[in-house]
């Protein structure tokens, strides 16, 4: 009789995740997308190229990589569903299992985000700006893969899972912005601008967008002198984005752990 140490379970699950991803078509789509998008920075239209690789990568992460990462995590979760009745009768805590899966996904999504900036870095020479954007893109990609993992742990039907993933992605991509646009003119928001800015700060895609545009690229924006929360955010974009992504990653991990703990009859 032996109960494996948490570190043993995490290491075994991490290795299993990597082995499983080697035959996951979503993984190859994800990597293929990263390579194509990375190369496209070299052949971007002149007006886009003029704005730099960082601007181009921002668009790519918002509209493609976030989605492919979400599907990568979802497929990782769903690949294990059939085996859960065997796995859940082993002396393994759900926390250790989910940690192993989450670390496996992060170790895949974070480093592969380098593929986005590699072509630009090789052609234009390495730049700190690109390193920063790649790190941020890797963070966003990692968070979305964990959100996919969490979604898959709760929504076990593949079709419903896919629909929910698309809905979540759309909600984060345009949902918050639409809501804020609709409420921007209201008296309450005008008198309490912090309430309006806060959802933008908390949304990982908006936090990424704002950070790359105004902190990394230093786009002209009157908000830089706006004072209050907006000014603080724009001057600490990198720190805020890191904190925001870390919080989302932890939240997704907690949701995934709770979802994994659910027994089929729950």
């Amino acid at each position: 009789m032996s109960i494996p140490a948490a570190s043993t379970v995490v290491a075994a699950t991490l290795q299993r995740e990597w082995l499983s991803q080697r035959l996951n078509r979503f993984f190859y789509w994800h990597v293929g997308l990263l390579v194509i998008c990375g190369l496209s920075t070299l052949i971007a239209p002149p007006e886009a190229a003029a704005r730099g690789a960082a601007w181009w990568i921002l668009q790519v992460v918002l509209f493609a990589i976030s989605m492919s990462s979400l599907l990568l995590g979802l497929s990782s979760s769903h690949a294990e569903l059939d085996e859960m009745s065997l796995l859940q009768t082993h002396p393994v805590s759900n926390r250790s299992w989910t940690t192993g899966k989450a670390l496996g996904l992060l170790l895949i999504t974070f480093p592969t985000a380098l593929l986005l900036v590699l072509p630009a870095a090789l052609s234009q020479g390495p730049a700190w700006l690109l390193v920063g954007v790649a790190a941020a893109a890797g963070g966003v990609s990692g968070v979305f893969s964990l959100l996919g993992l969490a979604l898959g742990a709760w929504i076990r039907d593949p079709v419903r899972g896919l629909i929910s993933a698309v809905a979540l992605w759309l909600g984060l991509l345009v949902g918050t912005d639409l809501l804020l646009l609709l409420t921007a003119g209201s008296e309450f928001v005008q008198s309490h601008p912090r309430v309006w800015v806060l959802p933008l700060m908390l949304n990982p895609l908006d936090a990424f967008r704002i950070t790359v545009l105004f902190t990394v690229e230093h786009a002209a924006f009157t908000g830089l002198q706006a004072g209050g929360l907006t000014e603080w955010w724009l001057h600490h974009g990198g720190v805020w984005l890191t904190s925001c992504l870390a919080a989302w990653a932890i939240l997704a991990w907690l949701i995934a752990t709770a979802g994994t703990a659910r027994r089929p009859d729950a």
């Binding site: 009789m1 032996s2 109960i3 299993r16 082995l19 499983s20 991803q21 080697r22 035959l23 996951n24 690949a79 294990e80 059939d82 085996e83 009745s85 065997l86 009768t89 082993h90 002396p91 393994v92």
Partner: peptide, 16 residues
């Protein structure tokens, strides 16, 4: 769980 082993009905595995 460290004291037993279980064989479920029609077991399936991660297909990859």
């Amino acid at each position: 769980a460290a004291r037993f082993s279980f064989l479920p009905q029609a077991p399936r595995f991660n297909p990859r």
